[in-house]
């Protein structure tokens, strides 16, 4: 059983909601990314999504765009992303790691080479924002052969027929995009999210995580009540950025991230 599957089954048996943070690798540095990953795991996160920096992040809002630009200034590449996961795995064998990014860096790395290196590094899943199932061949087959989950997005605009097709192709979990727009946008409509998540759960056994627009304990709690997991991206990336603007002491980053995650963990656990 894959790490992602194990994680969600354990959560389900204890009636808890997955907390899935997203950070951009290399913002502010590779060393800090490793520290933050351990901090997230220690503070009670269940799956960690690592953003692979890309020069043209056309589905991301300003916060993650800026983080990507900062990481690229540090010359962070997919190779660095794999190496930070290898380092993380030396001390953590259980927390699933999912890479989230755009296709071109993966395509240029080479699909064969990537799945080999990703598998060796201990990566559990991949979410390529601009690769819908229709365009996933041959990457999807290569990932499947190495038991790396291919996670797909479902959006508010996705028709039921399409959602079924996506669920048939996906593994690991489904990432439901809670609003029309880019990462970090506002205006969550919880009843709309609840209804869409319930539609998705009618067509698949896969757990459904929800992201885009969740920023604090309250929004996490309301989304957590109607889904299997909440993804927190822009709010966390922004917190890391704001903290590093004030201090370059790793301990300050660790404390800020930990305190923030703990409040969200507690809010989610109050649902159980």
């Amino acid at each position: 059983m894959s790490r992602i599957q194990t994680t969600f089954e354990q959560l389900k048996s204890s009636n808890r909601t997955a907390l899935i943070p997203y950070i951009t690798v290399g913002d502010p540095s590779l060393e800090s990314t490793l520290l933050i990953m351990h901090t997230l795991a220690d503070a009670g996160c269940d799956v960690i999504e690592l953003g692979v920096p890309f020069s043209d992040p056309s589905a991301d809002g300003p916060v993650i765009q800026a983080a990507s630009e900062r990481a690229l200034k540090n010359s962070i590449s997919l190779k660095n992303v794999l190496s930070v996961v290898s380092s993380f795995r030396q001390n953590n064998k259980t927390t699933p790691i999912v890479l989230m990014g755009y296709l071109n860096p993966f395509e240029i790395y080479g699909y064969q080479a990537f799945v080999k290196d990703a598998s060796a590094a201990g990566i559990d899943g991949v979410l390529i924002v601009d690769m819908p199932p229709e365009e996933s061949d041959p990457f999807s087959g290569l990932l499947r052969a190495k038991n790396i989950d291919l996670i797909y997005l479902i959006a508010p605009t996705t028709t039921k027929k399409r959602a079924k097709m996506i669920c048939d192709q996906a593994s690991g979990y489904i990432y439901y995009v809670s609003l029309k727009g880019v990462t970090g946008a506002g205006n969550l409509d919880i009843s709309e999210v609840a209804s869409k998540v319930s539609d998705i759960k009618n067509i698949t056994e896969l757990p459904v995580g929800v992201g885009f627009g969740i920023k604090d304990a309250d929004s996490a709690k309301s989304v957590g009540a109607v889904s299997d997991g909440v993804v927190i991206g822009s709010a966390l990336v922004n917190l890391i950025y704001q903290t590093t603007q004030k201090s370059d002491n790793p301990e300050d980053i660790r404390r800020a991230v930990s305190e923030y995650i703990v409040t969200i963990r507690e809010a989610l656990d109050s649902l159980a």
């Binding site: 056309s58 589905a59 296709l103 924002v129 601009d130 690769m131 819908p132 229709e134 365009e135 797909y152 997005l153 479902i154 959006a155 508010p156 605009t157 996705t158 028709t159 399409r162 996506i166 995009v177 029309k180 727009g181």
Partner: peptide, 21 residues
């Protein structure tokens, strides 16, 4: 019918835009 010119073209966008396309 999928928008491919040989190995080129296609539709590589975020899911939100798939329906609009």
């Amino acid at each position: 019918n999928k928008g491919h010119f040989g190995q080129y073209g296609g539709r590589f966008v975020g899911e939100t835009l798939m329906h609009a396309l």
